[in-house]
Design a protein around this nucleic acid. Sequence first.
DNA 1: CCCTCGATCAC
DNA 2: CCTCATATCGAGGG
Length: 364
Amino acid sequence: MATGRVIFHVDCDYFFAQAEELRNPSLKGKPVVVCVYSGRTPDSGAVGTANYPARKLGIHSGMPIAFAKKKATPGTVFLPVDLPHYSAVSGKIVRVFQEFAAKVEKTSIDEAFLDVSQETNGDFSAARELALKLKHGIKGKTGITVSVGVGPNKLVAKIASGHQKPDGLTIVQPEKVRDFLSALDVEKIPGIGGKTSAKLREMNVNTVKDLASVPVAVLVENFGRARGAFMHNASLGIDESEVTSERERKQLSIIRTLKQDAKNPAEMEGFLKEISEKLFERVKAEGVFFRTVSIIAIDSRLGHFTRSKTLESPANSFEAIHSTARALFESFFSEKKGVVLRRGGVGVANLGEPKNQKSLSDFA
DNA sequence: CCCTCGATCAC
DNA sequence: CCTCATATCGAGGG
């Protein structure tokens, strides 16, 4: 698995909670739970991130806040998310990344890939030294600890960064890739989640080694062309994808929980205007045109539904978002008689600069 | 090729 | 009792 490349994947440890500990050191040692409150009831919402003491109590990301509160001990601290603050910390960390690598791909607020092939001359011993310097640099300049995975490609680096946490460093040399992967559960492969692994389990495939022994044709048959090919390559540790600094955004969306369930369009009028305005602000900030407007509806039984409409020509106005979304919700409500809406969202896609935008009229 | 929608992943 | 945001795929219809 010699690719000539050396890739880092850096994952900030329990990021939101760690950022909170950083600005309020008295939190350290206590269970800290950072919450995404939905505003419906005082405790409705989900856990964003929990620090390690909280995890020891069985509190994890995605868990309902009310559930987390049942598990909490008296000293447990619950805090609301403060994304602007975490973004500022994240920005500082990215600036450290840029001191270490020319190619940096930020994939989320707390994760990034670094291509350090040049900086290390393709040498994994040099990579170890560089990774340690990077960890120290980030800790010194921002106070944040991170876990780093080092490998010959993004796939291996990403799996490696999750191997030892927190404050971890896992290096997988090219010739060790197969050994490193083979014993792992298939769910360690990014892109293989609960549904896919359950299906694989039924096929008696549990580890990456098992997966590697399945003929690619069988995977394609069961999971589709792209997915099957991806799974096959991943099982062998193969991933040619590049670290790309500039990825253009392809869609923007926003989804919120209603204060009260809506049974018809009228009951969500104010809500829809609000989220349309919020989305419009982001469209303005990005300076993009869009051609598709979509809505997402989540009913009281948590079923997910999407509807979308592609416009004749590119738009960038609040009106285009609001009126199209309203029409989509109206037809959704009349199509699905008796639906009770719990959450709703709006999105735009088919983005582009006005001059680059393809419109249907171009083909007429 | 394009559009729509559900599904999946993972944040 | 269940947040929020994005990318990607595949199927079905055109």
